[in-house]
Computed example of a mutant assay.
Amino acid sequence: MKLGIEGKTALVTGAGGGLGRAIAEALATHGATVVTADIRLGEAQAVAEGIRAVGGRALGVAMDVTDAQSVADAFGSIEVQADQPDILINNAGFTRDNRIGNMPETDWDAVIDVVLKGAYLCTRRALPAMISRGWGRIVSISSRAHLGNPGQANYSAAKAGLLGFTRAMALENGKFGVTANAVAPGVIDTMAVRSLPHYERIIENAKASLPIRRLGRPEDISDAVLFLASQRSSYITGEVLHVTGGRY
């Protein structure tokens, strides 16, 4: 099935991680030129090299999504080597868990800044080209945690805030042919999750409690992103698509 993204340029932030890599690879498979951005340049370049090795088009760039100058520099490099993005995937994010009484202010700020400030800086920079073309897709990776998780006040607040940001972008930019949507994953079987000391218990809990009795896979998320980034979703904006196996 043609998705209408052949020849489009897609920027994926946090592309060095498991979800970012899966999303970047999926977009490339369907004909997009993919810019893999990560604060770790080596990781971004490794993902891009993997895409090129199987015949795709990709460029790896360094980007600190919390730093306006770093974002501007990365977009400048993209413009020279590829093209301004038609598709922006705001994927950068991480957890620093703790109960609120024990959470250092630095951990609160770090999570909020990467998820929310990062989406703001990247979206602000990507929008002018999308608007001038009359076509654009902004897909932000939220989380089921936007409903609230104990020990994740910073992460839950950031991911909930991303939904408000998404809806504001949808209202502001729909008239220009630019849509903004979010994907909210549940627990996904990435290397980060596999490294947790209670990984086996997570699997057992998923099999016992989820309507779809397994952990999510990175491709479950990339498939959802592909749809929202495609021409097939042209009348969908301001929405959040939960990919959780039925967990709410």
Rank of each mutant, 00 (worst) to 15 (best):
1 M>G: 14
3 L>I: 07
6 E>F: 05
6 E>C: 02
7 G>R: 11
9 T>W: 00
11 L>R: 01
11 L>V: 01
12 V>P: 03
16 G>I: 03
20 G>V: 09
23 I>C: 07
25 E>F: 11
27 L>T: 06
28 A>T: 06
33 T>G: 09
37 A>M: 05
38 D>N: 09
43 E>L: 14
43 E>T: 12
45 Q>Y: 05
45 Q>R: 14
47 V>E: 03
49 E>M: 08
49 E>F: 05
51 I>K: 07
52 R>V: 07
55 G>P: 12
56 G>I: 10
59 L>C: 01
59 L>Y: 09
70 S>C: 01
70 S>T: 03
71 V>N: 00
72 A>W: 00
77 S>C: 02
79 E>F: 04
84 Q>T: 10
84 Q>Y: 11
90 N>C: 12
96 R>A: 13
101 G>L: 08
111 V>W: 00
116 L>G: 01
118 G>C: 06
123 T>E: 02
127 L>A: 07
127 L>F: 11
132 S>M: 08
133 R>I: 08
139 V>Y: 00
139 V>Q: 00
142 S>C: 06
143 S>A: 08
145 A>N: 14
145 A>Q: 09
149 N>S: 14
150 P>E: 10
152 Q>H: 09
153 A>L: 10
155 Y>E: 01
155 Y>N: 03
156 S>E: 00
157 A>Y: 02
159 K>Q: 02
160 A>C: 00
161 G>L: 05
161 G>C: 08
163 L>C: 00
164 G>W: 03
165 F>W: 07
166 T>Y: 09
170 A>T: 14
175 K>I: 08
175 K>F: 01
182 A>G: 01
187 V>A: 13
188 I>A: 05
189 D>M: 11
203 I>Y: 05
210 L>K: 15
211 P>H: 12
215 L>P: 14
215 L>E: 11
216 G>E: 10
218 P>H: 09
224 A>L: 03
228 L>P: 02
232 R>V: 06
232 R>L: 15
233 S>A: 15
236 I>E: 05
238 G>R: 14
239 E>H: 14
240 V>Y: 05
246 G>V: 11
